[in-house]
Simulated scan of single mutants.
Amino acid sequence: MGQTRLFLTAPREQAETIFSVLDTHFEDDGLPISIFEPEEDSGIFQISIYAEDNVDGLEKRILESLQDIVSLPPVEREVVPDMDWVSHSLEGLRPVRVGRFLVHGSHDRQLQRIGDIAIEIDAGLAFGTGHHGTTAGCLNALVDILKSERPRNALDLGTGSAVLAIAVAKAARIPVLATDIDPVATGVARANVRLNGVPSLVETHTAPGFHHNIFARKKPFDLIVANILARPLMALAPDMARHLTSGGSLVLSGILERQRRAVVAAYGGQGFRHVRTQAREGWVTIHLKR
């Protein structure tokens, strides 16, 4: 069945505001939402929501959620034909460089330089190609942490495509447990781990939160990265404290800028110390320590 793309076109700052509002408003609907720059360095972005039915009702909800935004651009429609969008989307994905990390698709393998820690992730069913601000923010935090710390055991909670687990495994050469609530994501993660040559270091499991016996066997961790969403991250704060070693580092993302204080407060109540917050594309990545 074909989809309809509802989209708004706006300059970067307004586009990021629109994306943040829509992402929050439709968080529980499971609808694909994206923000991208159709023409590189143009400063003009499109925010898109994809739907298969009740398009009129969706447009009404979009307009209602954005009613407080001044000079709101019109909501436009585009019928999206059935095709292999996973393969097609790769044509527009540019490599992402964060420190020594190079996240690239199979079509850009030739761009690897001497000294790069290359991570090959093709766009697919699981979240995390490195292009989203939260994933890039986590990679940047890992660059800083691995310069000064020597973790021995790591956890990537909510692994998605496993890009972060692979990054830690390749950079630190340590065992990493990668878990996700979605079995489809876990399957994609496992395939990416094999593709990147680290199956001996990264172990993947399907698990909601910390509810799996694998955690009892693998804990404690001295590095945990969790790129999820603010509300579940706050709920997980006590479990994070129980599974992270004293002096260990915790990297959190999937958090909007306006949610930062609430997340830091939730973890402060569990004995975590705030180290640094990095903002990127309307999202923040928070580094905490115990």
Rank of each mutant, 00 (worst) to 15 (best):
E39F: 11
C138D: 05
P95V: 09
L177I: 11
G99W: 09
L195G: 06
L146G: 04
V70W: 11
I114K: 13
S42N: 01
L31D: 11
A154W: 02
Q67H: 12
G160Y: 05
P74C: 10
A266K: 04
W283K: 02
S71I: 07
F215W: 06
Q270A: 03
P151R: 00
D82L: 13
D56N: 13
F221Q: 03
L157S: 02
P95C: 02
E13M: 09
V184R: 02
G2E: 13
H104A: 14
R276V: 08
A169T: 00
E149I: 04
G43T: 08
R100A: 15
A165G: 14
L256F: 15
R261V: 10
D53A: 11
A235Q: 12
A162C: 06
V143I: 03
F26E: 03
S34M: 04
G197L: 08
V75G: 08
R152C: 11
G158M: 07
D56P: 04
S200N: 15
V70M: 10
D23L: 10
S48I: 04
M1K: 13
G137P: 05
N227K: 01
G271R: 01
R100I: 08
S106G: 12
E40M: 12
V225K: 05
L58G: 03
P199C: 07
A191P: 01
I33M: 09
G248N: 07
S65H: 12
A189G: 00
P232L: 03
V143T: 15
I121L: 06
I47R: 03
E27K: 14
L6F: 08
K60H: 11
L256C: 05
F210I: 07
L233Y: 10
E76Q: 14
D156E: 05
Q278K: 14
R5D: 12
I49S: 01
Q14V: 01
D28K: 14
S106A: 12
N140V: 10
G57S: 10
I255L: 00
F221T: 09
G137A: 01
I49Y: 01
L164A: 06
L22V: 02
L155F: 14
E27D: 13
T186Q: 07
E257N: 09
P73N: 02
G268K: 13
T129K: 06
P175Q: 11
F101M: 00
D82M: 08
R242Y: 06
S65Q: 01
G130C: 06
L252H: 09
H287A: 11
E203L: 13
E39D: 13
I119R: 07
N213L: 09
S71K: 15
S200V: 06
P81R: 01
N54H: 12
T179M: 00
L244S: 07
V98T: 12
Q112V: 15
T24H: 12
I119G: 05
D222L: 08
V79T: 14
I121P: 04
Q259W: 00
P208S: 08
Q259F: 05
M240E: 04
A172K: 07
A126Y: 09
G254H: 07
K289P: 00
E64C: 07
G92N: 12
P199L: 06
G247M: 02
